[in-house]
Simulated scan of single mutants.
Amino acid sequence: MKKTFTNLLAGVFCILTFFTAIPAQAAVAIPETSSFYLDWLGFNGAEAHATLEINNALFPNPSNGLAFLTPGNEIVSFSLTVYDTILGSVSSYQLTDFDAFSWDSMVTLDLSQELVGQQTGNGGWGTEFVNGETGDFNIFATAGSGAPSSDGSYFHIATNEGLGNVMTLTSFRPVPLPAAFWLFGSSLFGFIAISRKKPEAQLI
């Protein structure tokens, strides 16, 4: 009897946790924004790393051709740090240092996975040169900001507003899901496990 009562309490706890986590799960399942990590590599070990946050309702996926995204609309936030091994310097930039971003995809990409290399029908996304265009993704510095900018080729940025060392984007991947998602998942599985447990035979 005591064990049955303990199991009942555990079941009630799991149910309460389950329904408490539903609002958090709903926010995770249909977020207003999505965040990504981006990495670039360049000559002699130069590298750059960024975080990008997009507005899911405005971001075009697919873009069906080259689309230009604007800060404050499709792009919610952007933060970039450049490590220049040639000059031995580290520089940081924010969204206000850029006035446009370009995005190009003729098919819908899976934004929950690494984007670079995803199959698009014409090879992997970001793996082909686009002559005379900015390519599948690029950034454009605000004049006078000194931030890295498109050098006119696919997936390339160049330091010093496009005049310096060229770097190639090597990764465009989503930021992992927040802890609320895992809380919801663990609560759900705990509830299922207890509800499936067969009652033990009572001793007479």
Rank of each mutant, 00 (worst) to 15 (best):
L115S: 07
L109T: 14
S105T: 12
Q113D: 05
W103V: 05
Q118L: 13
L87E: 11
S112C: 02
S112N: 10
S105V: 06
Y93Q: 08
G117Q: 12
T96W: 07
L95A: 11
M106K: 08
S89M: 14
S92R: 01
T85K: 04
G121V: 11
T96A: 15
T96P: 07
S91F: 03
S112I: 07
Y93S: 02
G123V: 08
A100R: 11
I86V: 09
G123T: 15
G117S: 14
G117W: 01
L111I: 09
V90K: 02
D97T: 13
T96E: 14
T85Q: 15
V107Q: 12
T108P: 01
L115F: 02
G124C: 13
S92G: 10
D104H: 14
L115E: 04
G121K: 08
L111E: 06
D110R: 11
D110G: 03
V107I: 09
V90S: 12
D99M: 06
Q113Y: 10
S112A: 03
S91I: 03
G124R: 01
T85R: 13
S91P: 08
G117P: 03
Q94T: 15
S91C: 09
D97V: 01
L115P: 01
L95Y: 06
W103K: 00
Q113P: 04
S89Y: 08
D104S: 03
L111V: 10
S92T: 10
F98E: 00
Q94P: 06
G124D: 07
Q119K: 02
L95E: 09
D97L: 06
L87Y: 02
T96V: 14
S112T: 13
D97E: 14
G117M: 05
L111A: 10
G88N: 13
V116R: 00
V90H: 06
Q94F: 00
G88Y: 10
L109E: 13
L111W: 04
S91T: 12
A100S: 09
Q94K: 15
L109Q: 08
Y93T: 12
E114S: 15
N122C: 14
N122P: 02
S102P: 06
L111Y: 01
S102L: 04
D104N: 05
Y93W: 08
G117T: 00
T108W: 09
T108R: 06
L111R: 02
D104V: 12
M106E: 11
S112P: 05
D97I: 09
W103Q: 04
E114N: 09
D110K: 07
G124Y: 04
W103F: 04
A100K: 01
T85F: 07
E114P: 14
S91A: 08
L111S: 02
S91V: 13
T108E: 12
V116H: 00
G123C: 00
L109P: 08
D110V: 08
A100H: 12
T120S: 11
M106F: 04
